[in-house]
Amino acid sequence: MSSDQATAFKTDFVKGVILTLSAVNHDPSAVMSVLGMFGYSNPLTALVVKYGSLGLAEALKAITAPTFTDADVEAHLASKGFKVEPISLESFYG
């Protein structure tokens, strides 16, 4: 792949990502943009049309929700949650 082709690929890909993310966000104009850019017979278009309002919406929701880094999760696990000890039944009455 030449440098120009690689650049074209990256440009197409980035556009595809942006348009797809917009499309799955239930924006009819973005869906039309995807159709216009890639054509009706394009696999990406077909996937957007087929799954745009289904599985990808969940993925988009996951991506756009508050994100956790590994450090966030580790910090949460370190600061919350603990093990407990049972009551000593033998010395219950003191």
Binding site: F9, D12, F13, G16, N42, L44, A59, A62, I63, A65
Partner: peptide
């Protein structure tokens, strides 16, 4: 078409990974 397929596969991979981990 091949570029679009590659882009779609990469997109789904990114979406899947980000979705799964988050």
């Amino acid at each position: 078409t091949y570029r679009a397929i590659a882009g779609a596969v990469a997109l789904f991979f990114i979406l899947y990974c980000a979705s799964f981990d988050q």
